[in-house]
């Protein structure tokens, strides 16, 4: 077999009307890893082209929101927080911000990329994956900001061993965000109403995700409702790891992971089904 023959057989493509219901196509995504990298770079660059402060916006956003939340919810509304209010809000906002960004960015995958998708083929999943990864960059900058605040409030900080779970916390948020996002993006092709629902829904979701109100101040009879929210164990768990306050139960954490797996499964099935023919509907 000559060299060119080998090259050819490696890029054999078969187009069929139907494919297996669940197909991760990890090999294909790996082949396109340079594209994934470029998408991440592009996401990051294009947001801040023609801005003055550039990436500093990543830090200003949570910082300003933290000050406002501290003033409104802590000083005026006197809502009790686990740990110092500034740290409480900042840590919650950073994690939530990442999660919300993942959903919002990925939920418009098909509609905002219809132009490109309509002309060339590449694995569509690279686009939402790139969003999730590029959001990681701003998350890490924000975590550095958080470390700075942890140093300032060091006498109230009490790092727990669960901090080792931080990568898992972030992964769970990333995949719930990605899963929900690609489900929504697949369904918005046919039902545009969902696009409006999502922006609004994510905002409402925040109020029930212990970003502002810790689980510890929620009345017991409503607690079961909050327990259904897979994001709470992550945010509460993160705070517990930082200052030893708040609720962290392994059972809740496992529930979050299970939820992640289910939402990703459904997401991938829907996404794969949609990507083949969505250009006919859009």
């Amino acid at each position: 077999m000559s060299n060119s023959d080998q090259q050819k057989s490696s890029s054999f493509i078969e187009i069929k009307p139907t494919y297996p219901l669940f197909d991760l196509r990890i090999k294909e995504v790996l082949h396109y890893r340079y594209l994934l990298f470029l998408f991440v770079k592009r996401d990051f660059i294009t947001i801040y082209k023609q801005t003055i402060l550039g990436p500093l916006w990543h830090l200003l956003q949570p910082l300003l929101t933290t000050f406002i939340f501290t003033a409104i919810f802590s000083h005026f509304a006197k809502i009790k927080t686990d740990g110092p209010p500034t740290l409480f809000y900042l840590s919650g906002l950073i994690m939530w911000g990442y999660f919300a960004a993942c959903i919002n960015k990925t939920s418009t995958t098909f509609i905002s990329n219809a132009g490109v998708f309509g002309k060339v083929y590449f694995p569509r999943i690279t686009v939402p994956l790139a969003s999730v990864i590029s959001n990681l960059l701003s998350l890490s900058m924000q975590l550095i900001l958080l470390i700075f605040f942890l140093l300032v409030y060091h006498h109230q900080v009490c790092i727990q061993y669960t901090i080792l779970l931080l990568p898992v916390f972030i992964l769970v948020l990333a995949f719930i965000g990605l899963g929900v996002g690609i489900i929504v993006s697949s369904l918005t092709i046919r039902y545009r109403d969902l696009a409006y629902l999502v922006t609004f829904g994510v905002q409402l979701w925040m109020y029930g995700s212990s970003v502002i109100i810790p689980l510890s101040v929620v009345p017991d009879r409503y607690k079961f409702l909050f327990k259904l929210n897979p994001v709470i164990p992550i945010i509460e768990g993160f705070r517990y790891s930082l200052f030893g306050k708040g609720a962290f139960l392994w059972i809740d954490f496992l529930y979050s992971i299970a939820f992640t797996v289910v939402v990703m499964l459904v997401g991938i099935i829907l996404f794969n089904r949609t990507e083949r023919n969505f250009m006919d509907t859009i």
Binding site: S11, I13, I15, K16, P17
Partner: peptide
């Protein structure tokens, strides 16, 4: 070019 899928039939490309 795999922008949209066929309703029936197959295409093989090397």
């Amino acid at each position: 070019s795999r922008v949209t899928g066929p309703t029936t039939g197959t295409i093989k490309m090397h």
